[in-house]
Amino acid sequence: MTAQHISPVATFTGDASPYGGGEPYADYRTADFPFTQYANLADRQLGAGVIAANDEFFAMRENLLLAHPAVFDPEHFGHKGKVMDGWETRRRRGVSGEHPWPTEDDHDWALVRLGAPGIIRGIVVDTAHFRGNYPQAVSVEGTSVDGSPTPEELCADDVKWTTLVPRTPVGGHAANGFAVDIEQRFTHLRVNQHPDGGIARLRVYGEVVADPKWLAALGTFDVVALEHGGQVEDASDRFYSPATNTIQPGRSRKMDDGWETRRRRDTGNDWIRYQLVQQSEIRAVEIDTAYLKGNSAGWAALSVRDGASGEWVEALPRTRLQPDTNHRFVLDAPVVGTHVRIDIFPDGGISRLRLFGSLTEDGAAKLAARHQELGG
Rank of each mutant, 00 (worst) to 15 (best):
W312I: 01
L276K: 01
H173E: 03
V124T: 14
D85Y: 03
G250M: 08
R328L: 09
H79T: 12
T11L: 08
E62S: 14
L66F: 14
R283Y: 00
A365W: 07
S252P: 04
Y240E: 02
G78D: 12
R113E: 15
A217T: 08
M60W: 06
K293Y: 07
T244Y: 05
Y134A: 08
V180R: 03
G94F: 06
D105A: 14
A308E: 15
F356P: 00
V145A: 11
A284R: 14
A39K: 02
A174L: 05
S7Y: 02
A53P: 06
V138T: 08
Q322C: 01
E233F: 00
V277S: 10
E260I: 04
Y25H: 06
H339C: 04
T127W: 07
I120P: 02
E227F: 00
D85G: 04
D43V: 03
L276D: 03
M84N: 02
H99P: 00
A364K: 07
I51N: 11
K160H: 10
A53C: 15
T289K: 07
F345A: 06
K213R: 13
Q278G: 07
G294E: 09
D324W: 05
G86V: 06
S17D: 14
R238Y: 04
A67Q: 14
L226S: 06
E260V: 05
F33V: 08
R251P: 05
E88F: 06
S139N: 00
E153N: 09
S96N: 07
D234G: 06
A365C: 08
G47R: 09
P334A: 11
W101A: 12
R93D: 03
V112S: 11
A110D: 04
H5V: 10
L226Y: 10
G219A: 12
P169D: 07
V140Y: 03
P102C: 08
L218S: 10
A137V: 00
E23G: 00
